[in-house]
Simulated scan of single mutants.
Amino acid sequence: MGLRDRISNFLLKQVEKRGWFEDIFNNTIRYGGRYVNDENILESSDVYELLQDISNQLMLANIIIEDNEGNEVKNQSALKVLRNPNNYLTGSEFIKLMTNTYLLHGEVFPVLDMDQLHLATNVYCELDERLIEQFKVGGESIPSFMIRHVKNVGTNHLKGVGILELGKNTLEGVMSAEKVLTDKYSKGGLLAYLLKLDAHINPQNAAQSKLIKAILDQLEAIDESRSVKMIPLGKGYSIDSMKSPIEDEKILAYLNVYKKDLGKFLGINVDTYTALTKSDLEKAMMYLHNKAVKPIMRNFEDHLSLLFFGRNSDKRIKFKINILDFVPYSTKTNIGYNIVRTGITSPDNVAKMLGFPEQNTPETQAIYISNDLSKIGEKKATDDSLKGGEESEEKGNAEN
């Protein structure tokens, strides 16, 4: 059996055994009595939202191939693989999974197996005596030309760092606090009642048992805080409420401080990002793009280019992101209005009339507002009209 078949069979067995997604997300860290792994970390809405915002930008990017002069290269087989990497992931799902794994673990291992692209897990890697990185998956060696080690580099040249490691203490504290609040309110706020009796409870006392059961039924029927129940009690009976020992305000204050720290491990300031999303979504997306997405995108481009084309090729894989995909329709309308307004004020004579500064270029001086059927930038109609005007002027002078 060839090397390619052995690797393919191993990858297939992993998929069949427990599912590729589950296999990718299997690392667990234990701290302070609370387990934090890459499955339950997504239970935290704040972490999930930040991961979604970053990975969605990469997911929506158009992937192209360029030569060393920046010209787009068409009809490359690499693009077919990137758009349909394998039988269980689409191209967009693959990029999103690759990004989330990279952010959580700090490293990800894309494997190119002929016309299929996979993300390998449980990879052991080391540098040999010639400083060439060697890879093993389940004891099987994988040639270095088939696999890339994409790292979120910290201070180690052979291992990346992700949020599970960088933010371990913060994550576990935040998730423990979230779990306490969730458990409290999912269990009715842990509000209990203490029934006091002056006399001993006697199971044989039918009247006493009936009264206790009626009281319990009334208490259990309280399904929300606004409900009011009137329970008439006989002599010797009283009901006291036991308040939950969990103090919401202190836990919420803790979360308000430390949840923001999670953004730092993803490369953004949560306060800045949140403020921008409320005031200007386009600026928020550009902030996220420049602070977090762009470095990841460059790293992915480098490694995928080497994986598909090798070191000696002049071809390069590029991610093209249209930031307008992330802004509302009203913002796009305003952008379109501004473009039209700029076009209207391009001719110097119109700019002067409307109070805008003149550009004083041959192009802006040659444009006439009467050329409404010609596209701005196409000077043929303008040139013809200008030429016709000059001929008329010359003819008039000759006649005189």
Rank of each mutant, 00 (worst) to 15 (best):
M1F: 10
I7N: 04
I7H: 05
Q14E: 14
W20R: 11
W20I: 12
D23E: 13
T28F: 00
Y31T: 05
Y31Q: 13
Y31S: 13
R34G: 02
Y35W: 06
V36A: 10
V36H: 01
E39N: 15
I41V: 15
S44N: 15
S45W: 08
E49T: 13
L50N: 08
Q52G: 00
Q52F: 14
S55G: 08
N56C: 06
M59E: 15
A61W: 08
I64Q: 07
I64H: 02
I65R: 02
D67P: 09
N68H: 10
E69V: 01
N71E: 07
V73P: 04
K74A: 05
N75I: 01
N75K: 09
G91D: 02
K96L: 01
Y102W: 02
L103Q: 09
L104N: 06
P110E: 03
D113Y: 09
M114L: 05
L117T: 07
L117G: 01
H118M: 08
T121R: 12
N122P: 00
Y124D: 13
F135N: 02
F135V: 03
E140V: 14
P143I: 07
S144D: 11
F145R: 11
I147M: 11
H149S: 12
V150K: 03
K151W: 07
N152C: 07
T155W: 08
G160H: 10
G160P: 06
G160T: 12
G162F: 07
K168R: 14
E172M: 10
E172L: 00
V174F: 06
D183A: 09
G188I: 05
G188A: 05
L190E: 03
L191S: 14
L191D: 11
Y193W: 14
Y193I: 03
K196E: 08
Q204T: 10
A214V: 07
I215T: 01
L216I: 15
L219V: 03
D223V: 04
S225W: 02
V228S: 07
M230A: 02
I231Y: 05
I231F: 02
G234L: 06
Y237N: 02
I246T: 15
E247W: 02
D248M: 01
N256K: 13
K260F: 07
K260T: 03
D261H: 11
T277G: 06
S279K: 12
D280I: 01
D280Y: 00
Y287P: 04
H289N: 12
H289P: 01
I296D: 03
I296R: 03
M297V: 04
R298V: 09
L304T: 02
L306P: 01
D314P: 00
R316P: 00
I317Q: 05
K318A: 11
I323P: 05
L324A: 10
F326G: 03
K332C: 10
K332M: 13
N334T: 11
G336I: 00
Y337R: 15
N338A: 14
G343T: 02
S346Q: 10
P357M: 04
Q359P: 00
N360F: 11
T361A: 10
T361Y: 06
E363H: 09
I367R: 13
I367Q: 12
I369F: 15
S370F: 08
S370C: 04
S370G: 09
D372W: 15
K375Q: 14
E378K: 11
K379L: 15
A381P: 00
E391S: 12
E391H: 10
S392N: 13
S392Q: 14
A398M: 06
E399M: 11
